[in-house]
């Protein structure tokens, strides 16, 4: 009897605890399961890239290649010109990113820090241009490209969407945070407007440039539809296109396709590991401000 009051006073606290633990346990279980599901296809890609073709489809499955076929990778470079293809991918993605950063920052800064005639209408046009999905203009674009000689030309992929409305919008948000006094002071010191842009604005926007740069690079690296239309000959292909080309032929070389896929995601995995803060931070800022 004497123990009754004690249990009565402690039970509300204690009865919550096991339930809490179960809830937290379930939450962690959910997080771990979907994390595993997110990473598993990439692990299977790596595993398959080191197998012989017949070992990719086995019952029971071969989880870890018994006899790693590094040859799959060397074969891509010696027989399928993956060196050229990788060079093309880097060339296109890097130049596109640099130009995109330059044009988007120029315009975003102008919209944020100047007042000028027709500013509202002009910015309205920038926003409205987001409404036209690029997929709907591939046919006229193809003809325009042909007359400019941009078909089978890496510049055809580099210039497409290089001054994107998203990028301008993104840089406008960040430019708004630059102190106007700083700009005015350099004006009094006799800096030209472009000089102010290169020596004050760009250094101040470094974090935003990193975020937008990484987002742009990743998108361009993964771009598929437009390069598929523009880059016709094998020597001009990007890595995504080259992987797709491996598929044609009598027997699909799945082990080579997987090895090519692994090569194509290595730069992306490095970006995830090194720049996740800029990547995710940029997206989150964009979401809340937009």
């Amino acid at each position: 009897m004497s123990s009754a009051p004690i249990t009565a006073t402690t039970s509300p606290k204690k009865s919550l605890k096991p339930r809490d633990l179960i809830n937290k346990g379930l939450a962690y279980l959910l997080l771990i399961v979907i994390t595993f599901a997110s990473l598993f296809p990439l692990l299977w890609m790596i595993s398959s890239s080191l197998k012989e073709r017949r070992d990719i489809f086995l019952n029971p499955p071969m989880w870890i290649p018994a006899n790693p076929q590094w040859n799959n990778f060397t074969q891509l470079f010696t027989e399928r010109a993956f060196g050229t293809v990788l060079y093309n991918s880097f060339f296109i993605a890097i130049l596109h990113t640099v130009l995109a950063l330059f044009f988007c920052t120029l315009a975003g800064y102008a919209f944020a820090k100047y007042t000028f005639k027709f500013q509202g209408i002009l910015f309205g046009i920038v926003l409205a241009s987001m409404m036209v999905p690029s997929e709907t203009t591939i046919i006229p674009m193809f003809e325009i490209y042909r007359s400019f000689g941009l078909i089978d030309n890496p510049w055809g992929v580099i210039v497409a969407n290089v001054a994107s409305a998203f990028g301008i919008f993104f840089m406008r948000q960040y430019s708004a945070g630059i102190h106007t006094e700083m700009l005015e002071a350099s004006r009094i010191d006799g800096c030209s407007e472009f000089r102010i842009f290169t020596s004050i604005v760009l250094p101040n926007l470094r974090p935003a440039l990193a975020s937008l740069g990484i987002i742009t690079f990743v998108n361009q690296w993964n771009n598929f539809l437009w390069p598929l239309i523009v880059l016709r000959s094998p020597s001009e292909q990007t890595i995504s296109l080259a992987i797709r080309t491996l598929e044609s032929g009598a027997r699909t070389p799945y082990e080579l396709i997987m090895a090519g896929s692994v090569i194509s995601i290595i730069p992306l995995l490095l970006i995830v590991l090194l720049f996740q803060k800029q990547l995710i931070g940029g997206l989150m800022d964009g979401a809340v401000k937009g």
Partner: peptide, 21 residues
């Protein structure tokens, strides 16, 4: 956060082929 976001930036073609396998 990083692991769950990773699939989004992996090359579409690479992901499509691993799914097809």
């Amino acid at each position: 956060r990083m692991s769950l976001f990773t699939p989004n930036i992996m090359a579409v073609v690479a992901v499509a082929f691993v799914f097809s396998i």
